[in-house]
Design a protein around this nucleic acid. Structure first.
Lengths: 205, 205
DNA sequence: GTCTATATGATGATAGAC
DNA sequence: GTCTATCATCATATAGAC
């Protein structure tokens, strides 16, 4: 998909588009879509404003491109759940993977949070389409495990919501988490232990 | 506090300030601070733009006023945890109260989420002050219960984070929740059952 | 491909009539 | 207290030189 969109571009074009997306992600993740100006993006990546708009037709387009690229990464762990695997461990692995993504890609998490908060105007088709399908598949797998007695019976949709909300919380609400915890804490490491314990307890039959 | 700030104002002044705050909350909750214009607020509450700015000196001030008022309501359930109460039930009641607030006051939840996401410039002192103190008190109560063998031993800070993130998720990410669930679901009612089960299972010694 | 300069429109805030 | 008119600023996007 990346290659498809970038095909026909020179090396410089590809490179500069990458630089712009990288800088834009940083700024969007802090200020949101409306709070971000092309000036800020240009400053962040060391290009001039018109030059940014030479590589992308508009601020909207930069934002949409970021969201589209983000979603591939975001949904991968859920798509990688292995129906033939050991049920509880598969879920715990998914939780851990999602938490790791929050830690390593907090900008992506915030970009996504901002977009959902404002009603997801740049994601409408995807939410009810690809995202929903992916979740439906995962829900079917979870139901199978439950019926086979490998997992305790809980609502699979809300199980997934709980994983999303708790893992992304540490990226999206980081300011609050750090303010409440004060110094001397590693939020993500503590969360890893807490969440593993929580889901093991919740899902063990 | 409300009365303190409103003292010395005429009935009309109080009334119009209320109307403005009410309309502003609706708009801020959808568009965020930067995404909201005074024009939108004025239109939402049926006043002219200069008239809005007659009652509040600036957009900033409207926003700060809303956040301050919101926090009283937001922290109340946590402050109301009763150390002498039955431990597990107190926690379950808190979860239920927080979920109810998400359902009944989704605008407040989103306003708060937007503010934290952008780094909470209008809440800096409060996060490390009043909020942190309130959480510290609750954590102490939870620790006491754990040591008395009334609750299973889990990290109390992260227990609170989990409650916040999961309950607020249904307000803040409502678009996503509805898109994923499709028709025929009542997200909040389902969440109530899921969360009660989850915390009962997690915290029963 | 990259820049300076600028057109065009939105937006926060104010002046001043009524 | 409320309005119309307006200012000043900022932001998106484009034109056109280099």
């Amino acid at each position: 998909m990346d290659e498809a969109k970038d095909s026909g571009l020179t090396r410089i074009q590809r490179r500069n588009r990458e630089i712009i997306l990288e800088g834009a992600l940083t700024v969007f993740a802090v200020n949101g879509f409306r709070g971000t100006t092309i000036d800020q993006i240009a400053a962040e990546c060391g290009l001039s404003k018109p030059n940014v708009l030479y590589y992308f037709p508009s601020k909207d387009e930069i934002h949409k491109t970021l969201l589209t690229k983000l979603l591939d990464m975001w949904l991968a762990p859920l798509e990688n759940i292995e129906p033939e695997g050991e049920a509880l461990q598969e879920v715990l692995d998914y939780v851990a993977a999602k938490l790791r993504m929050s830690r390593e890609y907090p900008r992506e998490s915030r970009l996504f949070a901002y977009e959902i908060l404002r009603g997801a105007p740049h994601l409408t088709e995807i939410l009810g389409g690809r995202l929903r399908n992916t979740v439906d598949d995962a829900v079917a797998v979870l139901r199978g495990w439950t019926e086979a007695g490998k997992l305790r019976n809980v609502d699979p949709h809300h199980l997934i919501f709980s994983i999303w909300s708790m893992t992304q919380h540490y990226a999206d609400f980081e300011v609050q988490v750090r303010a409440v915890l004060g110094e001397g804490h590693d939020p993500f490491s503590e969360a890893e232990i807490f969440l593993e314990d929580m889901y093991r307890r919740l899902l063990t039959p």
